[in-house]
Design a binder for these strands. Sequence first.
DNA 1: CCTTGACCTTCCCATCATGGGAAGGGCCAC
DNA 2: GTGGCCCTTCCCATGATGGGAAGGTCAAGG
Lengths: 155, 155
Amino acid sequence: MSEQRVTIGEAARLTGVSAKMIRWYEETGLLAPAARLESGYRTYGEADIHTLRFVRRARDLGFSVEAIADLLALWRDRGRPSAGVKAIALEQIAVLRQRITELEGMARTLEHLAATCCGDARPDCPILDDLAADEPPPPPVPRRRRGLGRGVPRA
Amino acid sequence: MSEQRVTIGEAARLTGVSAKMIRWYEETGLLAPAARLESGYRTYGEADIHTLRFVRRARDLGFSVEAIADLLALWRDRGRPSAGVKAIALEQIAVLRQRITELEGMARTLEHLAATCCGDARPDCPILDDLAADEPPPPPVPRRRRGLGRGVPRA
DNA sequence: CCTTGACCTTCCCATCATGGGAAGGGCCAC
DNA sequence: GTGGCCCTTCCCATGATGGGAAGGTCAAGG
């Protein structure tokens, strides 16, 4: 009853991580190099599938690949203190909350503008008027140093 | 009293759009090519500054460059119906709300997990247990097809 | 007149996670 | 043996942004 091993496509189906991404995770060191058949095909066993599901789940929670690497290391380290894990999670929560606050501000501003725009055939439009308002840049000093997911998904 | 013209660096300071971005917007067609001095330096007049501020403001509201191009066109088209503008704004609001909902879901899940994790020196950790839970992929079918700002800002 | 320093030019590269697609080979069932 | 998937690697694109190199301009001060 040697372990059942599957190809990368099957592993992708079983875990929800695309084959492309599995290769990329391997290439960038998030995952150890997969075992290969003589043909060169990668093969994955149950432990690998388990790991891939862990990765997908973490991605679904918005963790960066870098953070996932940390989480994986902690996961494999039985006996680690849970404090480290919690710290990573709290950091991620902070990032998410921050981002939500930014987006919420944008949405509220736009909702306000849209509410005052009749949106008919007439040319006057408070939305454009607002965008065109001749204000100098806000704080010329730091200007959101988010350097993160810096915009917003495109419209 | 010929119009006062400024260099790209000064325009950047006046508008909050970096010189790099101003060049990039020109290169990609969002902005018309700037006038040049004999030296090859770009120069910007008041109308250009106004336009750049419009662009910055729209970026601050999360509009994609593509959407900004549409807004700019409408802005310059006196006599356009305001309906088009409103439609773009509503679309953007929908995108923002969608994104907020996604992030909110992630944040709530993580907050729940973090709340049940003692975060001390002991090794048992509900967060890792959850990530490691052996669930198959959610809907293998569509898997978030956002194709937009696809992850979340990195942790 | 010449240097210095601040500014400009273009060009290339990196980010982050992801997908698309080409070119070539493997594997299996008919 | 052949057709149809699957695998391999490699390159390119995305979106908006920054970093930095190599070289030209310009104005002020010696």
